[in-house]
């Protein structure tokens, strides 16, 4: 697939338009703030509001130069406890462990839902309800509680990440387990396969594509969970801790840099799922490539979050 994607051109054009619009927007947003700062006599290395718009300490929109400087300050040294790489790695670890934990719990619930109507009737409403509870509210309690039993540091954050990530996995896998058509299920019966065999040979393989679709949604959810947990609980490392800290210190440029970095982190983590999917299920790719896409029914290749 060395052919240049037809999307590349338009994507670049859109990116250029956005970039070109950024400068006027930035001046528009910052000049009033700069004027105010000049009026109050703040110590700024500039004379006019126009000049100051790119040098404000807390700009409404940071100038590209400020962003670049902030980026350089926050990226290096790579292993500094106050730099993004180390903190991003901690958050990524929490997210991935949370996702794996969520997969475990999600699988358990999915099997319960598919195997037993009684289970579904008694628990499914609360599984759904659990998602309406703002995780940020229970996070502090959970962390203090787990701390009583010596569970500290990044593990509570992974658990909180798992709490919001297990739901899409449970629902997705349940769908996948139910997906084999009745014909195949009947066939298994005629072969005298017992329940376990049906699961092992038919239902589990059928649920794998669903699993990965769910993983993509769940990965973003887990990342949000990890960041929220870091913001709202005891944390000394992580993207969320950096956000909270710089919000307290009112360092707007740093907040922007961290925001952009966390976006990149989210994109990378979802890409990780995509990559794993291709590694684990090479036949899926073959199938997609073999199916010609009808021109009218354009299918976006990714499942939306």
């Amino acid at each position: 697939m060395t052919r240049i994607s037809p999307q590349l051109g338009p994507m670049l054009v859109v990116a250029l338009i956005v970039l070109a619009l950024y400068w006027p927007l930035m001046y528009l947003a910052n000049i009033p703030a700069a004027q105010r700062a000049l009026d109050t006599g703040a110590a700024l290395p500039c004379k006019t509001a126009f000049e100051c718009a790119t040098q404000l300490r807390s700009p409404v929109l940071p100038s590209p130069q400020q962003l670049w400087n902030g980026f350089r300050n926050l990226m290096f040294p790579l292993n500094s406890p106050n730099a993004i790489p180390l903190n991003a790695a901690v958050t990524a670890l929490e997210t991935v462990v949370g996702l794996l934990l969520a997969a475990l719990v999600g699988f358990f619930f999915a099997i319960g839902i598919v195997a037993s109507r009684a289970f579904e009737r008694s628990l499914l409403p609360w599984i759904v309800a659990s998602q309406t509870i703002p995780v940020i509210a229970i996070a502090p309690m959970l962390v203090v509680l787990l701390g009583q039993y010596g569970v500290q540091g990044w593990i509570p954050k992974a658990i909180i990440a798992a709490y919001i990530a297990f739901f899409p996995i449970a629902i997705g896998v349940a769908k996948g387990l139910k997906s084999p058509d009745p014909l195949s299920l009947d066939l298994m019966k005629t072969y005298n396969a017992n329940n376990w065999q049906t699961y092992l040979m038919l239902r589990f393989p059928a649920s794998i594509p669903y699993l990965f679709t769910a993983f993509k949604v769940a990965m973003t959810a887990a990342l949000i969970g990890a960041i929220v947990a870091e913001i709202s609980t005891i944390s000394f490392q992580g993207i969320g801790k950096m956000l909270a800290e710089n919000s307290r210190a009112s360092d707007v440029v740093a907040m922007w840099v961290i925001m952009l970095s966390s976006a990149v982190l989210g994109i990378l983590l979802v890409a990780l799922v995509n990559w794993t999917e291709r590694l684990v299920t090479p036949w899926q790719r073959a199938k997609v490539a073999a199916t010609p896409m009808p021109k009218q029914a354009r299918v976006s290749k990714q499942e939306g979050g």
Binding site: P140, V143, G147, G150, Q152, I231, S232, I234, F236, E245
Partner: peptide, 17 residues
């Protein structure tokens, strides 16, 4: 010496961190 942001120092000490 641990810095604090939003968290209450009492919660940190109570949790054992």
């Amino acid at each position: 010496l641990l810095p604090a942001g939003d968290q209450s120092p009492i919660q940190v000490v109570q949790s054992g961190a």
